[in-house]
Design a protein around this nucleic acid. Structure first.
Lengths: 226, 226
DNA sequence: CGGATGCTTCGACTACGATCGAAGCATGAA
DNA sequence: TTCATGCTTCGATCGTAGTCGAAGCATCCG
């Protein structure tokens, strides 16, 4: 009857509080088991299982069996982008579930957005790469320049491997705290993994916050000046 | 309990089919009355009234009383951006409510996105302005250059008036058909109005499609080359 | 002042979906 | 094999939210 895509289905999937909690938890980027997700949402395992089946059918999640565990994760980058967009609007309406606590500043400084770095540091990363002409901007699209390729290979990132994947290498993602873009895509993912592998930064348990070590923070700020 | 903004409330507002239909209708950019919106959603006036109250309370809509009519419209640009993001994902999942009909190509070519031009022509507009260095890109942010200001004033747009509004003048909006950015913000709105005022383009009734006249199409393509 | 139109509020009905206990499957460990 | 763990399926219950008819306000017109 009406034109355009069916947003009601997606909306209703996100609209249930239990499911929204699970999706928020998965924005942390790690794949989680039904048991863990049930705890996040505050429901029993049976209920969680039913929700997860719906989210998977709706294309928001994928699952991977591993032994007797089942790991659920966001299906694609685009799901993360969409959720951040919703969060941005909800935050602008002042619709936060918790009173801003001590963790809030840490979240604004650096957090994980599905699989890449977000927050103040995430925005700085992209801005710095653009300023150094290692990433080029055309409208919404980002492209790695030749200089950019040399740069990330020097950092120890396997560029051919990035190219192989079907996903875009560079991609913008709107930040709900900064209201600016940060770097997503397979490069964004690879860079975050690099920071963690080098011991510069750590994920906090049960939170999206990323904590930089003193050494890591210094190295990051030097490598990506404004 | 959980960190981050509350997306469930927003999701549940969008999640009801009747409300989703009304929001989709309002993406056409025109303010509509409860009676019209009820027709779009296929429900009675009483039900529509209740839905509209909820959408307004949730910050998605604003209303303006005018005589004995009440006009509802999307509350801010950001609502439109968020909805387009949802539509983009829904479309990528193949979740379209209608089988792609004859109107579909027209929608992809040029349509209104809340209050600005979207589709192929919308993307071309932004690309052309960027190529002519009349708009500058930094990350997600767009800025009008001096050359750009001269250009739009030459077109007959009142630049000081744009400046006065609190909204950003330039802004990107992700296009669900093109998967690229087009120009939103008060300038995007002013340009669409300009095209319509000049008689170059017309909104189609009960649709988001924009139909360019032959003369208007020629003028548009000349003014904004790739 | 009626009378008509546009919309909201109230109340009652209904249906759908979230929830959980219990039982059923699968996988891995002993 | 037997037991334990992790998860799904089934079935029943319960709330809540969408729906509409009827009545109540507000605004405009003649």
């Amino acid at each position: 009857m009406k034109e355009g895509p069916d947003i009601a289905l997606i909306g209703s999937l996100i609209g249930d509080p239990a499911r929204a909690n699970m999706l928020t938890a998965l924005m942390g980027g790690q794949a989680l088991t039904p048991t863990e997700l049930a705890a996040h949402a505050g429901i029993t395992l049976q209920t969680a299982s039913s929700h997860l089946a719906k989210l998977e059918a709706g294309g928001l999640l994928t699952q991977r069996k591993q032994g007797r565990h089942r790991y659920y994760a966001l299906a694609e980058d685009e799901v993360g982008l969409m959720l951040e967009s919703l969060m941005g609007f909800a935050a602008s309406r002042g619709l936060t579930r918790h009173r801003p606590g001590p963790k809030d500043p840490a979240l604004r400084k650096a957090r994980v957005c599905y699989n890449h770095l977000a927050g103040d540091y995430g925005v700085r990363l992209l801005d710095s790469l653009i300023a150094a002409r290692q990433i080029e901007v055309t409208g919404e699209d980002l492209a790695l320049t030749d200089a950019g390729r040399d740069r990330i290979e020097a950092l120890g990132i396997d560029y051919p491997a990035l190219q192989k994947s079907r996903r875009p290498i560079c991609r913008t993602c709107l930040d709900w705290s900064e209201r600016r873009s940060h770097l997503a895509g397979s490069l964004g993912e690879a860079l975050l993994r690099l920071f963690i592998d080098k011991g510069w930064a750590k994920r906090e348990q049960n939170s999206r916050a990323i904590r930089f070590t003193d050494r890591g923070e210094k190295a990051f700020l030097e490598l990506f000046p404004l």
